[in-house]
Design a binder for these strands. Structure first.
Lengths: 136, 136
DNA sequence: CCCGTCATACGAATTATTTCGTTGACATAC
DNA sequence: GTATGTCAACGAAATAATTCGTATGACGGG
């Protein structure tokens, strides 16, 4: 998927894999959590040590940070949710949508029809962007 | 990523993997093409047989169809571009954006600032959806 | 014909990702 | 202090995805 260096720090972390995204999603939702908490929040799927191993690898890749002060280490996403989401969206955009944001929006809305409220929110989002564009 | 059955037909094809998406993107762009054409259109990356093998696997998975009438077989995406894009967007939406189309739109726009024209097009897209919603 | 070129098929190696079994540390309850 | 339970750390296996080497057949030019 991408180059994999790994020294615990330095260069920007790689895009998370699918299983890693699932873990990040939990961390985004719950905030700093133990492996146990993350594992429980994930379905019944796989064993505890699988989740642990995954999170340890994520630590090496720099996708999460952990606080070892307690008996059960606390993990949290090392990048802001929005930042990671931006990268994921950008990656898919580039690879599967010819870089056309319009197509991606169309795809997203087709995949999951939004409520009127959501549509309104998206509209004001567009206003924001329009404004920002104007300023530059 | 998902269950992988594969018997050349019957159930709906799985989501394409990353390398497969790259190939689909080429097919979407060029229409029915030979392996050679697809391979050339792809970067310098890997060898010819790699692309061939990938496309053969995609055939088994039902992601592409091929016409063997000619010496060099012609491959094309078996589902409409829009359909596959919808699935990809929906998958990412569900896994990384809490199902919030708004967040995905935000991510996409942040990842790649859209032109004023694009924004306008997205707006009219929203109008479409609003209308459709009203009718139901 | 026979050869060089280009294509598919196939099998296996390589790499990436995910999973699990086992171990030792540590804490708490008894 | 000893049993019991939970945890992190490894290492290695299982699975998925990607890559490549080699075999073989079709084609066209000399």
């Amino acid at each position: 998927m991408a180059s994999r260096s790994h020294s615990k720090e330095s260069d920007s972390p790689p895009l998370p894999t699918d299983a890693e995204i699932a873990i990040l999603a939990v961390l985004w939702r719950l905030g700093a959590s133990t492996v146990r908490e993350v594992h429980d929040a994930l379905g019944k799927d796989s064993g505890y040590t699988t989740t642990l191993k995954l999170m340890q690898l994520m630590l090496e890749k720099g996708l999460v940070a952990r606080n070892e002060r307690y008996r059960s280490h606390l993990y949290e996403a090392s990048a802001a949710k929005e930042e990671t989401q931006r990268q994921l969206a950008g990656d898919l955009l580039k690879r599967a949508f010819e870089g056309s944001a319009k197509s991606l929006v169309l795809g997203a809305l087709a995949a999951q029809p939004a409520s009127g409220k959501d549509l309104a929110e998206i509209r004001s989002l567009l206003d924001e962007f329009e404004k920002r564009r104007g300023k530059k």
